[in-house]
Simulated assay, not measured.
Amino acid sequence: MIELRNGEAQLGLLPALGGSVASWRLHGRDILAPTIDPSLAAQRGAAIAAYPLVPYSNRIGNARFSFDGETYCLNPNIGGENNAIHGNGWEREWSVAQHDSERAIFTLDHDPGKGDDPAQWPFAYRAVISYILERDRLRVEILLANRDTRPQPVGLGFHPFFARTEEMTLRFSARGVWENDASHLPKGLTPCTDDWDFSAGRPVRALSVDNCFAGWTDEAVLAAPDAGYRVRISADPVFSHLVVFTAPEKPFVAVEAVTNMNDAINHPEILERGLHLLAPGERLSGVVCYDVIEPRGQTR
């Protein structure tokens, strides 16, 4: 594990386990909740608090897609489903490019032409993730470069598990929400009204949600008045979708800034699906920031 420190903030990182975050603590409390997910075998039973999503977010239906006249089959990589999920970055060991007490930069090179499994992803790419720990902020920078000789369709995202409290609320605005079918794939876009309206903030304790919201306004707030803080999530406009995943029995709320809707690669008819087509040598990048705000003052 690599540990970053800045004042009373501590960040544990696991480059060998998907370039992931092991923990983020501030003033002696967990901002993120380290979580074991048995359905993600590549995490090897480790408790993970957050991890990058490259080269796409969420599911690809039946682990198959067609692109540029070819059909590709991927390895299903989530237990109990026939889908592929969250790309392959979380399944791989990342290299440590550099780190000091407050910053770490990891890289991942995937190249089927050099022996990497094409059933994880059939195109060559390089991913870079930078973690910058400030006294009351975690800044995450993600970049993906097409290192193939062909165009490739890609997306980005980041998957944090926020420690849930009894009085926690979630607030954000979005244009619509993708409701899911029995395979956890999108079946239709619904306006964010009634039970889907989070614009005024909603308690999360009894929520059961695993959905992707479209047209997210690039800011969300998790407020924990019983713990004396709130977390403001802000992201570059490239992260046009927000995935929310929580259930009453879970000790966390996952609020994921992502570029693409679920199964975007299989929905070319949707113009705003958030999938990006990179020509050889082109890059896609974005920044997500997590600010911890306490009643006694602002963070900056």
Rank of each mutant, 00 (worst) to 15 (best):
E269D: 15
G28K: 06
A16F: 02
C73G: 10
V231S: 02
D291M: 06
F252M: 09
G176Q: 08
P186C: 08
L40S: 06
N211A: 03
D197M: 13
L185S: 10
L156W: 05
E219L: 08
H86Q: 01
P112C: 10
F239L: 00
T217M: 13
L133N: 10
E93L: 09
I48C: 00
C289G: 03
S234G: 07
T165N: 10
A119C: 14
L284Q: 03
D210N: 15
D30V: 06
Y56K: 01
G7M: 11
F245N: 13
T299W: 15
H159F: 00
L170A: 05
L156G: 03
E81C: 10
N260S: 14
L13D: 05
D37P: 04
P38Q: 12
F239W: 03
V204L: 06
D197V: 11
N75G: 06
G297K: 04
S240G: 15
R232F: 05
Q120K: 13
A200Y: 10
L108I: 02
S23T: 10
R103Q: 14
E249N: 12
S20W: 03
R230D: 11
D100R: 05
N260I: 04
C73E: 14
N62E: 13
H184C: 11
L14H: 11
G80I: 07
V154W: 00
H110S: 08
D116Y: 09
L143M: 13
L108A: 03
W90L: 05
G215E: 02
D111R: 03
R296H: 14
L242Y: 00
S130I: 14
W94T: 02
R44Y: 06
A63K: 03
Q10L: 11
S234F: 06
G297M: 03
L53S: 01
A22I: 03
R283F: 01
P237I: 09
E249F: 09
R296F: 12
G45R: 01
G281N: 01
A220C: 09
R171P: 01
R126D: 04
V255A: 00
G297C: 04
L4R: 02
L278R: 00
C289A: 08
E81H: 12
S57F: 00
V21N: 00
V292N: 08
L108N: 01
E282A: 12
R103S: 12
K114Q: 15
W24F: 14
Q120M: 13
L207C: 10
S20P: 07
V238H: 00
P55S: 02
T35S: 14
F245C: 11
Y56L: 06
T259I: 02
D194Y: 07
A227D: 11
P153C: 04
F106A: 07
I129F: 08
A22C: 04
S240A: 15
L11K: 02
T165Q: 12
A47R: 10
L275K: 08
L143I: 08
E102K: 13
G201C: 12
A257K: 01
A247N: 07
W90K: 09
P225H: 00
C289N: 11
Y290W: 14
E179K: 15
Y290N: 08
G12V: 05
R230P: 07
A264T: 11
D210I: 11
R135W: 09
G297V: 05
E282Y: 05
R283M: 09
T169D: 09
R147F: 04
L17R: 10
A49L: 05
